[in-house]
Amino acid sequence: MAQKEPSLVSEQTVEGDEIIIAEQVQKWYYNQFHALRGVSLSVRRGEVVVIMGPSGSGKSTFIRTFNALEAYQKGRIVIDGMEVSHDVRNIEAIRQEVGMVFQQFDLFPHLSVLQNVTLAPIWVRRWKRAKAEEIAMQLLERVGILEQAQKHPAQLSGGQQQRVAIARALAMQPKVMLFDEPTSAIDPEMVREVLDTMRSLAQTGMTMVVVTHEVGFAREVADRIILMDEGLLVEEATPTDFFNHPQQERTRQFLSQIL
């Protein structure tokens, strides 16, 4: 284990600036529905990219191909120098570097908050329990859930659960964080605490790809915004350009519906 860490660092410097490279990714569901019709995207280290678009546009499917929760049939995806392939060992290595936060939180209901956060570091990273718990407590403090560490997920509000889910993903010390509509299943008055957590995470320099409908968050935090529609990337722009001077007719139409 001790020898592995430096080699990863050297890989980083060789690989250069782009931590996610997706080239012409195509996906069919059941060999029929063409969900992704050739989407390309590259994300630099420390960048925050927000993906917007109507439901069914393939945005969730797209980011789920990054950690192989969805398979893709054509194109190429490289995460931190590792190609997302069918090789199981490769996939597991990539998943250790890519944290993900889900719409429905998907915390493990039979484990306490602390156990949710320490599970992967103990079983995947093989850390000692004491070390895992120490780091977990730091993360829980960072997301503001420290007092609830011994509770079970069902005893927390939606906003608190989502912040635990963020801490759980961060506990693996990932290089990239993916957010799949993290506030869509949360009561409106709790959305803000989750967005604040994500905002402060962005300020630490974490690379983030966020699928969301939160316009305020996108405008304020994103370095780039992408609009997807019908499995294609429609527009890619800085927040200012995206909201004030959209180039595509489809983008103007989308913005008129959500603003």
Binding site: M100, F108, H110, A120, W123, A169
Partner: peptide, 27 residues
């Protein structure tokens, strides 16, 4: 057991025997 549980465990990098032992079977 909801499929989201398995996806969340996969996303953390857990191998599938571990997912069965630690996440799916207890629930």
């Amino acid at each position: 057991v909801p499929p989201g549980q398995v996806e969340a465990a996969k996303a953390l990098g857990l191998k599938s025997p571990l997912i069965t032992m630690l996440i799916v079977l207890p629930q």
